[in-house]
Simulated scan of single mutants.
Amino acid sequence: MTDDTTTYDGDVTLNGSERPPVELLDPADVFVTTNSVGGDFAVRNAEYVFTHQSIDVERPDERGDAETTIGGSLEDGYVEQVDGDVVVTDAEDVFVAAEAAEGEFSAPGAENVYADDVSPTASPEEYDVSTVGWRQSATATDPTTGVYAVGMDHEIELTKARRNLELYLVGHGHDVRVEGRDADVTVHFVGYDNTVRVGPYLSADVASETGFDNEIDAAPYPAEDLVEMSRSEAYSNAGFGRRKVTFQEPTDDEEWCPNCGQAADAVIERHQMEAFFLFGYPVWTYDRSTNPACECEHCSPNAVHAELSPEERRSVLD
């Protein structure tokens, strides 16, 4: 084979123009996308390998010299398309998406390997947002599939989510925010220091974590949404004279709902009072509840999971 050596300063992307076999020498981090390597893929002497590709850690790399060698003062490498074998030598961290290589994948000399046998439910181009690279940003409204992100420091926002979604995050430093109603968010982490933030009307679950220090930040269900009548509204409606009023108030004293027994973000108490009211203020109390009934977002009749929020209904009617 001939030795076609190319030097770079900074990031490098393998996009199909390089003659295989291709070798990356001493990069910082390397990110490998789905269906990007047309042959075998070998990672030599990496510090960390995170992968959803089936891997043989002990298999020695017996390939000969590369046809194309890329070195120099490399920072990060992105493997998006190579029609043959790829070798990565002396990288710090290597992140490999599912089904990245058609051939065998080996990582001889890797110090730490996080591996799992997981495949996303869609191809990268089928997701509402598909990003590759460094410091990418994207948004989508009314998403139907989810997010596919490979690289580092991606900021992605999905709004008005009403269908179940999948987030497939490869790399580190990703921050994905999802807002919507009545949808399940399934998350796959391949890497570290990634955060998924979901709104209070969504549920989120980590289906796989191939790495560490990843987090789902779920906003708590707002207790105010369960309140049918607040104390101030009940007092104001009482007017003048002896009246019986009923109102609800959030309580911070309960982590488990006394009514249904489930762990709850929002617990409210239902209070009853009989009092003499003057200008909306109780000046004399005859009776009041001492052991108010409780309910939460799981059992309250006011926890209605409607397709549209009240604000969205008003916007449709306007």
Rank of each mutant, 00 (worst) to 15 (best):
V170D: 00
G171H: 00
G171F: 02
H172G: 07
H172F: 10
H174K: 04
R177L: 05
V178T: 06
V178P: 02
E179V: 04
G180D: 00
G180Q: 01
R181P: 01
R181W: 01
D182G: 00
D182M: 03
D182Y: 00
A183T: 03
D184Y: 00
V185I: 13
V185W: 01
V185C: 04
V187F: 02
H188C: 01
Y192C: 08
N194T: 03
T195V: 13
T195K: 09
V196W: 06
R197E: 13
V198A: 02
P200G: 07
Y201I: 01
L202Q: 06
S203V: 10
A207S: 13
A207L: 11
A207D: 14
S208A: 12
G211A: 10
F212C: 01
F212Y: 15
N214V: 01
E215Y: 14
D217I: 05
A219T: 14
P220A: 11
P220M: 04
A223T: 00
A223H: 00
A223C: 06
A223F: 01
D225T: 13
D225N: 15
D225Q: 15
V227H: 02
E228C: 04
E228T: 12
M229G: 02
M229C: 07
S230V: 05
R231S: 11
R231A: 13
S232P: 01
E233F: 01
A234G: 09
Y235D: 10
S236N: 12
N237Q: 14
A238K: 03
G239N: 12
F240P: 00
G241D: 12
G241C: 11
R243W: 02
R243G: 01
K244E: 14
V245K: 03
V245D: 06
T246I: 03
E249Y: 02
P250V: 03
T251A: 14
D252N: 13
D253V: 07
D253Y: 08
E255G: 10
E255D: 14
W256V: 14
C257R: 11
N259I: 00
C260V: 05
C260L: 05
Q262S: 10
A263T: 12
A264E: 13
A264P: 13
D265P: 09
A266L: 10
A266H: 06
V267R: 02
V267C: 07
E269W: 05
E269P: 05
R270G: 03
R270S: 14
Q272T: 15
M273S: 04
M273K: 15
E274N: 10
E274T: 15
F276P: 01
F277A: 09
L278D: 07
G280T: 07
G280S: 08
Y281T: 13
Y281N: 12
Y281K: 14
Y281S: 15
V283N: 09
W284M: 13
W284P: 00
W284S: 15
Y286L: 12
Y286C: 07
D287C: 04
T290G: 14
T290R: 12
N291W: 04
P292I: 07
A293D: 15
A293W: 03
C294A: 08
E297H: 11
H298G: 10
H298R: 11
S300L: 03
P301T: 02
P301I: 02
N302F: 09
N302Q: 09
A303P: 07
A303D: 09
A303L: 06
H305T: 12
E307V: 09
L308N: 04
L308Y: 15
S309E: 04
P310Y: 04
P310H: 01
P310M: 03
P310I: 02
E312A: 15
R313S: 01
